[in-house]
Write a protein that binds this DNA or RNA. Structure first.
Lengths: 126, 126
DNA sequence: CAGGATCCTCTTAGATACTG
DNA sequence: CAGTATCTAAGAGGATCCTG
């Protein structure tokens, strides 16, 4: 296991890593990125795919990703209007470690839930 | 790029992946795990290493990780009391994709910040 | 269809004080 | 030292209505 890149002093941009990490860590950002991995998507298509997100939060999330240079927003001036969101190269390069993390979760979700139940059962003995 | 493991229908535990993701994505969890990668740490040692975290949030974070079976809590009944936190095997296996993500951020933090500044500069033209 | 504007609620997180 | 308890502020997130 390599030395973690977050410890103070080990890297110059340590504080910034924390910041980006908490950006990625909001409720919807990672999900939005993952829905764009395969192909560009339209606004309501994303909303449907993600599921459970309000249009306001989807707007905010996509704006944030666009600001960070991870997502592009292409507007087709048709009627009705059509907007397509897609990953930039930067966004695609991020998707890789993100998918790895998702796969880990899938592999271990059962173990985690088993631990939780055991833990909660013990805590209920009072 | 593999199909994302988060899309509804592609995997049975899709909703649960979202949930674990948002658990990992709080402000301190990933940082706490990363500080335990190299060796077990004591409470105040963790607090100092992470930096900027309140003792309450550290307590909550560690309790959550313990509940999920990612962190062990060993109490030495000495005076003053001594408690040591360490990663379980499950926690160590999670640390791997997490460090990958951290390395990506380090590699690309400059590009992200450049995008942000350019984006904000454009937005300021109104 | 793709959002902007508003209002409201709930969670997250920080500060402080206290305890075994 | 390693927490617990309580209070509070800030922001995340949801619901609804409105518009080009």
């Amino acid at each position: 296991m390599p030395a973690p890149p977050f410890q103070p002093g080990t890297h110059p941009g340590c504080g910034k890593v924390k910041e980006v990490l908490s950006r990625l860590g909001d409720k919807w950002t990672v999900l939005a990125i993952s829905m764009l991995v395969e192909q560009p998507r339209r606004f309501n298509e994303l909303k449907r795919l993600i599921g459970g997100i309000s249009q306001q939060m989807l707007t905010r999330t996509l704006k944030g990703l666009e600001r960070d240079g991870l997502v592009t927003r292409k507007v087709y001036p048709t009627i009705p209007p059509q907007v397509e969101y897609g990953l930039t190269d930067l966004g695609r390069s991020l998707a890789l470690p993100l998918m790895q993390l998702g796969l880990w979760i899938l592999d271990n979700i059962n173990a985690i839930e088993a631990h939780r139940e055991a833990h909660d059962r013990k805590a209920a003995q009072d």
